[in-house]
Design a protein around this nucleic acid. Structure first.
Lengths: 209, 209, 209, 209
DNA sequence: AATGAATGAGTCTTCATTCAT
DNA sequence: GATGAATGAAGACTCATTCAT
């Protein structure tokens, strides 16, 4: 599917609004205003509001595979180094596409079937596949433990990052960081999280010493 | 606040519907029908649909503290044993109150301020406080590491459990477990998750050998 | 009809609220709260909200007749002096019972039939009768003109006072009297209106010189 | 603001219904039915029921100024003749737009602030200004008294006409004119009122002989 | 290809009143 | 006599979508 400029304008406006007010809390009218396009154009371009949601997942799902794929095939890095790179990649992704991940975090809960679920599953399958590949490489090279539940491990990776970024307002409050500017806070969070996850996954994946 | 039988009937009906269709995807009419009460009674009892959501959080938040508190004060368990008990407690909680946690998982994302956020924050504060207490006990007894980021660690605990239970339909699909009955699946998941998290948190908290 | 203390409390609370927000803009619940009585008591005492409105007119209509009647029968005053007294009496009445007159001014417009109209008509008949008597006395004594349209003249009397008091907020604005305190304004208005109406009705009623 | 055919259809239907049943006594559904338009169209066109009320005042307020203005600038009439014309103009206006004036009579009482009050005040200001101009012309030409309280005088003019037309059902009753057809009654009323007011205002404005 | 106008269905909430106690 | 709890009906408004142009 090719998205032209206006498609993208609508998608990004919708993403922001869905992120702030939820899918059902956002009206097509709101989106049209935010994207500065005619109201009827949204139905015209996407068919329906539901379809627009699916389009968001497709739009955001497209890029990931290639980026991660290239990184994994890099021959100069050890599996653990690759995993560290992967962690930073996902942290960056969540940080830079917070709106999208907020939308996804919410919608994946209620969509168990149907086109939205299919689009989400496709994103998840890609991630699963790439990470599996990486873990297996580490295992082949005897640098990663043999017994690793990849699915649960991924749950920890995405669960932690996702939970942290989608509820960062509570994190801020609980840790009395209200005085920090958003920028400072995000920078600090990024750093701490990166170190934390690397330590954590080193423990999960490798034979510690 | 005291909730009578009808309050609870409404709360539980709402919880289920919010869980399945989202807050905005559920009409007060739907709730009234599911709870088998008069439509006007919901406004009469709770004032508004928003208030009903807050009531759900208050209702579910009330019990936790005492249960966890008692467990933590138990003198016969070591800190690590207590943490293991805590893990199982939360796994059970998520498993038994999946509807509630689905609602909470969704609502905590968009409510950054206001009464809903306040109710959620209160639940989170309680959890934070209790776990902090427990970790500090372990540290005092030199059984837990000195440098533990409690907040991030909790993110891993709740993030993992939360993500797994709220998106278990994807987990099932990604691991090709569609053939399992829901009961079998849940039982197996519970078991695997428990072992996984205990191993994980042992690594996070203690000086491994 | 005898009104007890609670009846009167309700009537006066209703009168104030109807005056501020209109009959349909006031809920029985509002009245119950303002009167500090149980909600059901209003139906219990008055039967219905409509009946309460009728009760207001009956309650306020009762006193007028006797007061005016006595004044008119006073043998020491000339007809014109009596009319002057009457003018001040009505000005005082409108000033002291502004809420009631606001309600009446509004309700008399839409109630052309039915119990409310009947109650209002009864008040009007009383006034008409008394004033007619007074004018005829003046005519008998050759102090008032023979050709006086009493009905239109009363329209001028009540129309002027009524219009002025029910829309005094516009009068204030139009005459740039916003700086005056309510008290100062009312005092000044009362005075000016009294002089104005006496001059006016002297011209209408008597043979000027 | 430009009103198209449908706007006007809605405005006029609303005006009639507000006149008969009051603003709060009329539902948007009633208006939609009377105007034979879709229910949602009223919100679509006017935004809200309150806005529709404001639109009524704006719609009816637009024409007056020009008509009166032209008449006042007419060089062939004496000030008193102009005033007589003005009286007939307002009588006609009240007679022909009884619904509107009923609505205005009711709403000006409770709206002391806000957009409705602003729209009403604007109508009143226009009238005030035009009449002031006319009276001052009469004073300059030494045909009107020097000491005239224009504001109170206008209260008498509008108060009388307004009171008479908005409560004409009581006038009919009090004067035992129930046997007259509406047409006959209105014709007769118009005539009597015109004569009455001209006599009255001649007395108020000019040096009588 | 793009859109202004329009709409049927549905939203949450409030209402005056009732009735068992 | 007095009332807390309850409700059927109705309220104003918003929604996603359509369709003639």
């Amino acid at each position: 599917m090719e998205y032209n400029e206006k498609h993208i304008k609508i998608i990004e406006a919708a993403e922001k609004l869905f992120s702030d007010n939820g899918f059902n809390g956002t009206s097509v009218r709101d989106i049209a205003e935010a994207a500065d396009v005619n109201l009827a154009m949204i139905s015209y371009y996407f068919g329906s509001k539901d379809n627009l949601l699916v389009a968001i997942f497709k739009y955001r799902g497209e890029n990931t595979r290639q980026l991660v794929s290239e990184m994994i095939e890099n021959k100069e890095l050890s599996p653990l180094e690759k995993f560290y790179t992967l962690i930073d990649f996902y942290i960056d992704k969540f940080q830079n596409q917070q709106c999208f991940h907020r939308v996804m975090a919410r919608e994946q809960i209620i969509h168990t079937h149907g086109p939205v679920a299919t689009a989400i599953l496709s994103v998840k399958k890609t991630n699963m596949e790439l990470i599996k590949q990486l873990v297996q490489e580490g295992q082949r090279k005897k640098q990663f433990k043999k017994e690793i539940d990849i699915s649960l491990m991924m749950n920890t990776l995405f669960g932690t990052v996702n939970h942290l970024y989608t509820t960062k307002h509570y994190y801020k409050e609980l840790n009395n960081l209200q005085s920090l500017s958003d920028e400072q806070f995000e920078k600090q969070l990024r750093k701490k999280l990166s170190v934390y996850l690397k330590t954590l996954f080193k423990a999960i994946l490798t034979y510690e010493d």
